[in-house]
Amino acid sequence: MAGDTKERILETALELFAQNGYLGTSMNDIAQQLGFTKAALYKHYTSKQEILDRIVEHMNEMDYERAESYEMPETEPDGFAEAYLNTPIQKIRAYSMAQFDHWTKEPFSSNFRKMLTLEQYRDPKLAQLHHDYLAGGPLEYMAAIFRKLTDTDEAAMQLALEFYGPMYLLYSVYDGAQDKDSVAPLLDAHIERFIAKVESCYRKDRETI
């Protein structure tokens, strides 16, 4: 029961953070939303920072479990590029679409994204989290993968931008769309075209060796 209560606190706090911002939400706000006294809330979490830290830990746990469930290659840049391209295209597409669903449809992750979007210009620590989870982090990760397939760091970064840029944009498109089901096919078509392009270029490079 204690574990269930702690999880409910995290979910409720994150809903408030997504609506009002992390900085705009107090421990008293969280307690009131839960129907707790502040004293009862403090028995489970001693501060708002502790709640945020546990939210980030939970996000990391979800990321690991999702990658493992889709049987994606190990995410080490030195060996990932070739393994990624040797993974069946349907698996790559399915995992990429799962990532998009994770950030848009899954309530916990979606609220985390919205919180970071709200706070990225107001708090340096939350700005860093936005960078790590949604902006520079994914971009740098993809560039590290594509460095195995390109001649220069600049070319690798261009590929990363080409792949991730539309995905990042579609998060906002999804949030504002009246017909949210119309967004996923756009992403699916983008991923399919991109993977086909990269596979073609990779095979040509291998043939010239």
Rank of each mutant, 00 (worst) to 15 (best):
S172N: 15
E192F: 13
R193H: 04
K204C: 05
S182G: 10
Y202T: 08
D181S: 13
V183P: 09
Q178V: 09
K180F: 01
D175Y: 09
I195S: 10
H190V: 03
G176P: 00
K197V: 01
H190L: 09
Y171W: 04
H190D: 05
D175N: 14
D175K: 09
F194N: 06
Q178E: 11
L169A: 12
V198T: 01
Y171F: 07
K197C: 10
L186H: 07
A177Y: 07
S182V: 10
Q178N: 08
A184D: 03
G176T: 00
L187S: 08
L187F: 00
R193E: 10
I191V: 09
Y168P: 01
L169V: 13
Y174H: 07
D188G: 07
G176V: 00
A196T: 14
A196F: 05
I195K: 11
I191T: 10
R193A: 14
R193S: 14
K204V: 10
A189G: 03
A177F: 00
S200A: 12
Y168G: 03
K180G: 06
L170T: 01
F194S: 11
V173D: 03
V198S: 00
F194R: 10
K197E: 12
D188A: 01
S200E: 14
P185V: 03
L170Q: 07
G176E: 05
L187R: 01
Y202R: 13
S182T: 12
I195E: 08
E192D: 05
D175A: 14
P185A: 03
M167W: 10
V198P: 00
I195H: 11
H190I: 03
H190A: 08
Y168I: 09
S172E: 12
K180W: 01
D188M: 05
A196R: 15
V173N: 05
Y202H: 13
C201E: 10
D181W: 02
Y171C: 00
A196Q: 11
V173E: 02
E199N: 11
I195Y: 07
A177M: 08
D181R: 13
A177S: 12
D179V: 06
S172A: 09
E192T: 15
I195D: 08
V173G: 01
L186M: 08
S200R: 11
Y174F: 15
S182C: 07
P185N: 08
A196I: 04
A196G: 09
M167L: 04
S172F: 11
A196H: 06
D181P: 02
Y168R: 09
V173W: 01
D175E: 15
P185M: 03
S200P: 00
H190C: 06
L187Q: 02
I195G: 04
R203Q: 13
S172D: 15
Y202S: 15
Y168M: 05
D179Q: 08
K180L: 05
A177T: 02
V183E: 07
K180I: 04
R203A: 14
L186R: 06
A189Y: 12
C201Y: 09
K204P: 01
V183S: 05
A184N: 05
A184I: 14
A184K: 15
A177Q: 07
Y202I: 06
M167E: 07
K180Q: 06
Q178Y: 09
E192H: 05
C201S: 14
E199A: 11
L170A: 04
V183N: 10
V198E: 00
Q178L: 08
V173P: 01
D175I: 03
S200F: 12
S172V: 04
E199L: 12
L169Y: 13
G176Y: 01
